[in-house]
Design a protein around this nucleic acid. Structure first.
Lengths: 168, 168
DNA sequence: TATTGTTATACTCTATAACTATA
DNA sequence: TATAGTTATAGAGTATAACAATA
């Protein structure tokens, strides 16, 4: 987990287009393209921070959502994190095996699990949160003091708009 | 390729946290979290547009970069798209097999290929560009008229800052 | 020795479909 | 019949390492 390591050797050979940055052409004006590069770079930077901890960036959101919504079910959790419930199962299996979460059948509906953090899970989350905060601090610097709320609102609007489409 | 299909059945059962949106807690304030959701939603929406065309969103950038930088080498291309050269090989193999690109050894450096679009590749790219433009138009609406340049600049700053880190 | 590109391989993330058990 | 969760499986996407050809 969290095993991203790059080695971008900067040589400057003598043939066209290879020594400098490529021209992006129309890509330079596409939000979608920059969204991909920014999220990928940010994700890997966060993963690098988590090196040594055996938890990937995606698991952080799972733990944070359980803490914030005690007793949440797996299906509700998968919806909030916009992935299929079947993608969540192995993650939760692992977190349970490691004693980070508890799963209890709901008496009112014995098909569902009620998910909660254990004390160990809370401690893990708090550790992860420290790294997330440090990472976020870097992002804040890049975005600037006035831009953050706007940026989050815009990103949220994008996510919400296209998620609705997916339902159609 | 481009096979994303969601079915978010909106039932409203009678147990806690399942009927409505979950609380995001601290995640609500994290740029990184919203970056992931926005890019994932936008990516899948674009992929949905490309349904029927046997090319994924990632391949679009490859074709666009080759068009914009005729004769580019594989290593330079992989760098511009921030992925390893070995990830590019199977994509280029496929594009070449389908007659979309040409690969010629550079006389000046016979280790390198010079990549170019064929006529068919250009036609494919133009078709893809129509879909990308339509998708981008949707994003523009969401971002608003004044926000676009700012958003792209911010995303670019994030990508650039963390890519540099990766080199260290 | 260093670099370009290929190959072999593996890991992460995520989805679909069929299943069990409950409702 | 419908829903919650599991299992089996598959397919993108991407990386590392070892390699051949070339520099």
């Amino acid at each position: 987990m969290a095993k991203a390591r790059h080695k971008t050797s900067q040589s400057h050979p003598a043939y066209p287009q290879a020594s400098e940055e490529l021209s992006l052409g129309p890509l330079a004006g596409l939000i979608g393209f920059h969204l991909r590069l920014a999220q990928s770079a940010s994700f890997h930077a966060f993963a690098r921070r988590l090196d040594g901890i055996d938890v990937s960036p995606g698991w952080f959101a799972v733990l944070a959502l359980i803490k914030e919504n005690p007793g949440v079910t797996q299906t509700a959790l998968s919806r909030a994190d916009t992935r299929d419930k079947s993608s969540l199962t192995p993650i939760l299996d692992d977190l349970e095996r490691r004693g980070m979460i508890s799963r209890e059948r709901l008496p009112s509906n014995r098909r569902s699990y009620s998910l909660n953090l254990t004390a160990a899970g809370l401690a893990l989350l708090e550790d992860l949160m420290k790294h997330a905060t440090a990472h976020e601090h870097e992002l804040d610097q890049l975005v600037g003091p006035g831009g953050k709320a706007d940026l989050i609102e815009t990103l949220h609007r994008i996510a919400a708009a296209f998620s609705q489409q997916a339902v159609k």
